[in-house]
Amino acid sequence: MYDTILVPTDGSDPANRAVEHALALAEQYDSHVDALYCVETYRYGEPALSSAEIVLNDLEERGQALLNELAERADNYGAEVSTCLCHGRPWEEILTRADTVDADLIVIGYQGQSHSRGGKIGSVAERVVRSADRPVLTA
């Protein structure tokens, strides 16, 4: 049913919950897990100034650390994992990546990092659910 599961993460609590779901599913279905971290350059802009470049480097480092941690966790579940770090608008990059890896399921936290209000779905998750032509699990 699920050969390839895409799990985008930004390190937020809902994203971590999504990772739990993705790994539990991967364990049962023997799925390949593809983990994605997107540096939100739409929000921060591509660097024109050196200080912005430092911010992006920090975000990239943070993203890579999250992906490494996720790969380790996947290993504990015996799941085969690949990771991808990209720049762009998260929801667009998630859909593009889903096409690239031909994901059978996208597992996404219902709200991410930048979300401050409780109880409502985040804009990234909402756009992915709305626009994806594949199954999406919001957790």
Partner: peptide, 13 residues
């Protein structure tokens, strides 16, 4: 959409 948006449980669409 309403179930995804307002429900507080995991949903697969």
């Amino acid at each position: 959409e309403r179930v995804v948006r307002y429900g507080d449980r995991p949903v697969i669409t």
